[in-house]
Structures are given as C-alpha cells and as structure tokens.
Design a binder for these strands. Structure first.
Lengths: 104, 104
DNA sequence: TTAAATAGGTTTAAAAAATAAACCAGTCTT
DNA sequence: AAGACTGGTTTATTTTTTAAACCTATTTAA
C-alpha cells in the first residue's frame, strides 16, 4: 500500500533529489569527510552553488560543517551526519523501487 | 569511464528527473495512452501543474498530445513517444547505477 | 431561463531553486 | 606594493515549480 511508485515519487526527499545535492551526498557517502575544495573538484559545481547547497544540506541536518585553519588558510570540513546517511539510504530505497516498477 | 556516479548525476536528464514529470511518465509507461483526467487522478498534481509539465514533455518530444471531442466534451490524450520511452529507459539505467554505487 | 455547479483545461502570477557573477578577506609571488 | 591565487560568501539573474485565477462549454437545479 506504500509500495506504489507514484506515492513514492510524490513523497521523494527533494533535499536529496536535486542533482547538485545528490552529487555532494554521493561524495560524502564514500569518503565520510571531505573539505570544500575536494567537493568542488569532485562534483564540478561552481563555488557559489556548492556553498549554497551545503547550506541547505546543513539546514536539513544532513551534513555537519566545521571550519578550521590549517597553516593560516581556512578549511571547511563537511561530514555526513547519521541523519543524512539514513535519509540517503531511504532515498535510494525509494528510487530503487520506483525504477524497478516503472513500466510494470 | 562513463560509469562514474558523479558524471552520471551531472548529466542526468532534468526533464525526466523532476518528480512531477517522472510521475507522469511512470503512468504513461504503464498504460501507453492516458487522458488528462486520468493523469490528474493518478499523479495527484494540480491541473495547472499537470498542464505545464505536459507542455514541457511535449516540447522535449517525450509525449505526443492529441485533443479530441467526445460527446461535445473535450478530451486530451497523451501518449509516450518512442523517444520518450527511450529517454525514460536511459534515465532509469543511469539512476540505477548511481544508486547502486553510492557509498561504494 | 437563468443561476449555480462541473468538466476540462490554459494563462498568469507568486514562491522556490539553480546558476552565475560579483565580492571579500587573507596569502603568496614578484 | 601591485597583481594573482586560495577559500569562500553574498547578491542578483534566470529558470522551475507550485498555486491561483481565469476561460469556455455543459449539465443540473430552481
């Protein structure tokens, strides 16, 4: 009764679904902790776009952000939170089901 | 070299990725041809939203739209085109790969 | 017969999101 | 000290999404 593709699509997590943020989360899921520059290179997003989307992910509680200085240059460390990992897993399960049952 | 989740995400088909349109395509993939009211009920979108998104899908060549009259009342028939079906399949393959390799 | 509700949509306008451009603070190079 | 680079944020422009209003025609009810 919950396994209806259309219901799943309607309720999909938009915070994760946006390609820019899915890219960010995909990186973090693999490495656990990455800095701003790493994500910039991996995702190919512009700095502004990355900054804005990190803000949204942080707001959602999906990532935690810590700023520090390394030899006088600033560094922003981003980590996937437990909540974020859980949400990502749920998103994957939902999309998996949608994809498999599309055209069934 | 193409099977990199991040590359795939960056190149994902936005026309299909949007939840509203994915819902529409999911319906059409199952039934081949549906009318406006059918899609309205199935997807749960508002009429305006459905109309606008059908316009985009038509523009992309993913659906064909034919208007006819049945007993004096208008009816809009929507069908998935070959191009649309192909794009949907490609989208599913891409997302499938992304999901499977996320956190790998 | 004429008002009110319904069907089937489209158009317009308001809210949210993505993208790009500009900016700021500090550091390094020359 | 001027210019260029690093590491970001803020602002503004454009694109999307969503919702609200509107239009045309039909049926129902008074």
């Amino acid at each position: 009764m919950k396994d209806d593709p259309l219901t799943l699509i309607a309720g999909i997590d938009r915070t994760i679904h946006a390609p820019a943020r899915l890219s960010i989360l995909a990186c973090l899921a693999a490495v656990k902790t990455g800095d701003f520059t790493f994500l910039l290179n991996q995702t190919g997003l512009t700095r502004g776009n990355l900054s804005a989307n990190l803000g949204k992910l942080e707001e959602a509680g999906y990532v935690s952000i810590k700023k520090e200085f390394v030899e006088k240059i600033p560094r922003t460390l981003i980590r996937l939170t437990a909540k974020g990992r859980k949400a990502l897993t749920a998103y994957c399960n939902d999309m998996q089901f949608v994809i498999e049952n599309l055209g069934g």
